[in-house]
Design a binder for these strands. Structure first.
Lengths: 340, 340
DNA sequence: CCTGGCACTCGACTGTAACGAGTGCCAGTC
DNA sequence: GACTGGCACTCGTTACAGTCGAGTGCCAGG
């Protein structure tokens, strides 16, 4: 029941044509547009087999064939040829590098770039706190009983939290607190901090003990528990390309899913190192996104991965192109981060 | 050519019915659902006048009437009765207050709340830097030639920027720099800082001069020039309610507009104090949003205004309800901010 | 000034027919 | 045995005609 080379070529042709025309493709059109070297009738036979195997289907009897999710999967795994970026695309990616002034800027530029290049919805996860280390902790007195805790991570992320102290704390004590927490925590990975924070409380002098206890609670919340992942999104307007054909006229579930950070994180955040992941149609776990595909990968300075990025679009998308662009952008962002 | 009371009542009834049913409303249905005390024929005459005056129109000859933008305008200005919030809505607003830990949290909760209450797209502007004062400036050494500048504003906003120094600066000098900039700038409104920053450079000692010069450039950029306004958005999925009837089936322009921060800022950011602004259909300046209306207002602690918030939806929206909710939410957010 | 009545308009819906893209199958060819 | 041309068949799309009915404008009468 194997598929010989020609049948695979037919499948590839169907996917490519359908992606570009958005219309079910028939046997006649297929032989006209591709050099298959056989007649429509032969192609029809091959199509019948491909359909039997579940790679393509007919929307209705008198229509051409359309790839199924399974067909796209085979295409992505075995049939797609790498699509080199055009010079224009390359230039666009390089140009976006210049002039980014901080992490926010980098992320925003990246997500817009990705949306523009792929003409899909782009998603970029900020560098995950879980994969960051503490660079510096700052305590800024707001009033005698309030501090602003600012945590600066090595990935460039800056988190702030208000700390309500149990009682007034003099400025000198704040200085001590600042010194203590930095001595203990600076350089530590955020995931390793809980015991260190615990130690801080135990080692604190009696005067500092109450303030340090409160502070430690907030520290743990900020550093570990709330684990606030952030996401940037762009290009939602691209969902409306292709009229209402994609997503069978109902953008609703897609838009709803895109508003859930949890969903997006699941889609692009689970990064095995340096692979590009492709989720096609119902391969992803969310019902709302059955009609969508996701191409994602991890990024980070050097070989480490600090976050994920990717694009989301209709299953009928240009997989080779999007894969190439997602990879390229991830690599450039990694380089950019490495410079800091 | 004035409109007597009954004609106004008819217009009000048309708006209310059309908003709730989403279908052109005819004379017969109107007298059935409202106590107008007259016959359909009379209503028809009134309708003819209202149409002549441009307040309503017929989508086609054999259909009922639909309000025009001008009709909505009149309705909002003179006919709508304030709609008190339901207890459930009140409770929802109060509940959202509890447990907000920082500005980001407040803004995100607010925008989601607003989207959920109004079932429209909600937009919240972060407290504007232009209306903030400097609370504290922090300089964190990243390497010998790099600093992270962190600015904490009294509105709770925290901005960071990387500073590339012209040469190595010893730790003691960083301390001096920190002290100097805080002495000069802490408490100042951001819009008042340029001369102060200038003075900083002039007064700096020769050793600090080069570093201070670089720092001042970044300060000016961060504090004044880039004036980075931030926006949070939620509820885009609500655009798909009412099927494709609203926005005549093309969400595209709306989604595109929503991705432009500049556009959103114009819509909700221009706040005259303590008024609620309603922009109906083509009253706003963006072609993309001709089919949409915006209800917005300013918010801030006490009587001052630090930012705007609002909702965007089809012109066929529940103006009284949305106005009430936007106001209520703005007031609550103001109270919340005042507590900090 | 309001009302009932009436003719009229025109979109929505229904049913029918013609069309055509595309298929599956089969007999014939290399 | 694999491929091909031919052919009957399916079924969605389009066009057209006819009916229906919601809603109107207008008018004569109260």
């Amino acid at each position: 029941m194997g598929l010989d080379d020609r049948k695979l070529a037919v499948l590839r042709a169907i996917v490519e044509d359908y992606v570009s025309t958005q219309e079910p493709v028939g046997s006649k059109a297929l032989v006209e547009r591709h050099q298959l070297g056989v007649s429509p009738a032969t192609v029809r036979n091959d199509m019948a087999v491909l359909e039997e195997e579940g790679y393509i289907r007919q929307p209705h009897t008198s229509a051409g064939r359309v790839p199924t999710d399974r067909g796209y999967r085979l295409f992505v795994d075995r049939l797609s040829r790498v699509k080199p970026l055009s010079p224009a695309e390359r230039r666009a990616i390089e140009r976006f590098l210049v002039g980014a002034v901080d992490l926010d800027d980098v992320v925003h530029r990246t997500v817009r770039l990705l949306a523009q290049l792929t003409r899909q919805v782009a998603v970029v996860q900020y560098p995950s706190l879980a994969r960051s280390s503490v660079r510096h902790l700052e305590l800024v007195p707001i009033s005698t009983t309030r501090l602003m805790l600012v945590m600066i991570a090595d990935t460039g992320r800056v988190e702030q939290r208000l700390v309500e102290l149990p009682g007034p704390v003099p400025a000198d004590d704040v200085t001590d607190l600042r010194r203590l927490v930095n001595e203990k925590l600076a350089g530590a990975r955020l995931s390793d901090t809980p015991p260190l924070v615990q130690a801080l409380v135990e080692e604190a002098s009696p005067e500092l003990r109450p303030a340090m206890t409160t502070l430690s609670t907030v520290l743990l919340e900020t550093l570990v528990e709330r684990h606030e992942e952030r996401i940037a999104l762009a290009g939602t307007a691209n969902l409306t390309r292709g009229g209402l054909l994609d997503f069978q006229g109902s953008l609703r579930p897609i838009l709803e899913a895109l508003e859930e950070e949890v969903v997006l994180l699941k889609l692009i955040g689970e990064t095995e190192p340096s692979t590009t992941r492709v989720l096609i149609g119902d391969e992803n776990e969310f019902d709302n996104l059955r009609a969508a595909s996701v191409v994602s990968t991890g990024y980070g300075p050097g070989a480490t991965i600090v976050g994920g990025l990717g694009v989301l679009g209709p299953t009928r998308m240009d997989y080779p192109g999007n894969i190439a662009m997602v990879r390229a952008v991830a690599r450039y962002v990694g380089e950019l981060l490495a410079q800091n």
